[in-house]
Amino acid sequence: MRTEHSWITTPVTASLLRGVVDVEHTEHGLLPHRLPAWARAQCADPQLAMAESQPAGVRLAFRTRATVVELETLPTKRAYVGAPPRPDGVYELLVDGRPAGRATVTGGNTLTVDMTAGTTEWAPGPPGTLRFAGLSDRPKDVEIWLPHNETTELVALRTDASVEPAADPGRKVWLHHGSSISHGSDAAGPTSTWPALAASLGGVELINLGLGGGALLDPFTARTLRDTPADLISVKLGINVVNADLMRLRAFGPAVHGFLDTIREGHPTAPLLVVSPLLCPIHEDTPGPSGPDFSDVAEGRLRFRAMGDPAERAAGKLTLTVIRDELAALVQRRAVDDPNLYHLDGRELYGEADYAELPLPDELHPDAAAHRRIGERFADLAFARGAFAGAREAV
């Protein structure tokens, strides 16, 4: 290890980041965002604000000969009233594309959420530092994937050798939008969310706009997708519309049409894949909203339940079965004039047999093993022999 006098502090700028849509300069450093400032200004929902600031798919990427890398950050931890403590967010190190370490940062701010009362409380805390040591003293490409589920302000990057932004890898860019499952939900780490796994297997660069609780067909999200450079685009739609009991069938179809129309304004010919919801038994035939079930909290488990009435489907309330049928028919109609538009039934990624083997621990979100299965299946169904086949070809 080099001496302390050889430390080099490199300003963290957007040039060192991949998978990011926008950055905000704060009093502490740089805060990555996955929605631009103008979009954030159009919605005051605290859930969306939290989700888009959690850097799923965002990573520092640089080239260096450093043997030691330190990253000082200010995380914002989440705590839920009545639920067991959440683990610290995980940072993952890749060296020349291969896993080389994991770390966490203690301390930081705390956001306490009371799901019963619908309130939040924020408490400030100090920054912390993670360290990766023992790296080889040779030029190498280094990536540090930020926690997919923990808002992270980047304070300082310190190394014992100079740093420069990594070269453009020359891979196609895959832009994906979805719900908390795409965001990462209960994945083991930032490189183990199903989109990150699928991107690795597909040989593409990921921009993950999976927004926990925020896949609600918002026009500003469609415009963000429209304006973000990408070669391949997928949108996974449906579950959050049911979770939030946001709209009825009459509004859903036109909203999806408008969402896709907006994306096509910026990406008229890019392969565009519409993915319907994964299997979620509580909402297959029962409308939302979803609500927390605290009956097992004492045993360390929080579950969700469907709070709607199946009879309400007659009045246009949405279920996953209804949404899948509507999306399949909608894409089929549009594809007559849009040969680069595709559809994938989400149950091909996670269906009844998968639920029997790898059930959803909280009845909404897959666990780490299911994330891996979903990512591998998406890589096969989309990248190997589907809408995105040929994506490994250089741009």
Rank of each mutant, 00 (worst) to 15 (best):
223 R>F: 02
62 F>T: 06
208 N>T: 00
250 R>F: 15
186 D>H: 13
310 P>L: 03
214 G>T: 00
183 H>Y: 04
359 P>N: 07
385 R>K: 09
139 P>G: 09
295 S>T: 13
343 H>K: 03
64 T>N: 04
153 E>P: 08
393 E>H: 13
22 D>K: 01
139 P>K: 03
194 W>H: 07
362 D>C: 13
352 E>Q: 13
220 F>K: 02
210 G>M: 04
298 A>M: 05
208 N>S: 04
326 E>I: 15
164 E>Y: 11
323 I>W: 13
116 T>L: 11
387 A>G: 06
386 G>A: 06
294 F>P: 08
265 E>G: 14
295 S>H: 09
22 D>G: 02
388 F>G: 05
37 A>H: 10
367 D>Q: 03
151 T>F: 01
59 R>P: 00
177 H>Y: 04
145 W>T: 14
119 T>E: 11
355 Y>M: 02
389 A>Y: 11
342 Y>T: 05
348 E>M: 10
314 A>W: 02
201 L>T: 02
369 A>N: 03
236 K>A: 15
7 W>G: 11
293 D>G: 09
91 Y>F: 15
181 I>Q: 01
275 V>K: 02
88 D>M: 05
112 T>C: 03
289 P>E: 07
274 V>P: 02
47 Q>R: 11
250 R>D: 15
341 L>W: 12
319 T>L: 04
